[in-house]
Design a protein around this nucleic acid. Structure first.
Lengths: 177, 177
DNA sequence: GAAATTACGTCAATAGTACTGACATAATCT
DNA sequence: AGATTATGTCAGTACTATTGACGTAATTTC
């Protein structure tokens, strides 16, 4: 009577393909590519007792020195509480420092220290190496195209804060190519 | 004396750039692109009380019906214990069924049910739509190139289990690799 | 046939990242 | 003065992942 298994449980033996015009190839590749892409820094981070969240914070603090906590939350799209622990650890270990905002003293501007800059570079190096190798594998001329594809994968509303390529990074300093 | 802050803490005010030949643009784009790419299915999964792990299991069970638990662990690169809860939930909710292996009765071959197939498609649909849109944005002809780039981003040792493109997917039973 | 190995399941304990909601403080704006 | 903003913090929870250990059934090996 009270079967635990409802009648529906018949196994489907055929693989899902592109039947419904679904691009499983790229879906799957994206999964594998991102996993391996993050595995490089993950190994380094483990030595510091850090995780991927630390990497992201460190990355953006180095990319946009002086950004505020609120701006960082907006870029990462996480909550204050999620950031709190990670940021505190980075500050305690002297990778990041907080400076009181000049205009608004409530704000905390975040800056990397030399130590934080060095770690950010160390984490980015293997990722950049992987990217360079991949671009070479598929004809290096296509760099721009890959960039455009990835940018187009991002939600349109968010593309503003990406400021890719052109080096219009964070305003201030910049200028580089 | 016993300062809590070591001398090192001076803020660096200049943004990290391509100084060390590091490809920050693509590193960052990859982060944003993957985050938005996974956010689509995440919303659907929430309705089922499922997470991203359920999606991955469901995806590969649909892509390679009949794969064993050990094979799934190998593809996902997670531990048995991480898989256990997720797989159990998918089985309990009748998205996946286990069949005793024909050759080796210790093995459990995993198959999607109609329900599991439907959910896998529902999850993949917005992702595929996003990919299609992105490819159009950057000149659709470049599909192959994006595929090759992503594949090149994957660790070489793992490319075997990817069998991209051509739909030579799983070849169902067949002689494994 | 007995022993070792394999495939799977499960239990216990822990960690990292995320969430919601609430509350406190200081600074700025109206 | 009062409202709002920027930040910090506390409590509680959820999901995904880890390592290590143990058990059972099936297969392989000797």
């Amino acid at each position: 009577m009270t079967d635990k298994s409802p009648p529906a449980g018949k196994p489907i033996r055929t693989a899902i393909t592109s039947e419904d015009g679904i691009d499983f190839a790229i879906i799957e590749l994206f999964f594998f590519a991102y996993r391996d892409f993050t595995s490089d820094p993950d190994q380094i981070l483990a030595d510091y007792g850090f995780g991927r969240a630390h990497h992201r914070v460190l990355h953006f603090v180095n990319r946009r020195p002086g950004l505020t906590v609120a701006e960082l939350l907006d870029v990462l799209k996480i909550t204050k509480q999620s950031l709190a622990r990670v940021l505190k650890q980075l500050i305690d270990t002297d990778h990041v420092v907080q400076l009181q905002g000049p205009r608004d003293r409530r704000q905390r501007e975040l800056y990397p220290t030399a130590k934080g800059r060095a770690l950010a570079l160390a984490l980015a190096r293997p990722q950049s190496r992987r990217i360079r190798a991949a671009l070479e594998d598929c004809g290096a001329a296509e760099r721009t195209l890959v960039e455009r594809f990835l940018e187009a994968m991002v939600n349109p509303e968010l593309r503003a804060q990406i400021d890719v390529g052109s080096g219009k990074m964070s305003g201030k300093s910049h200028g580089e190519h």
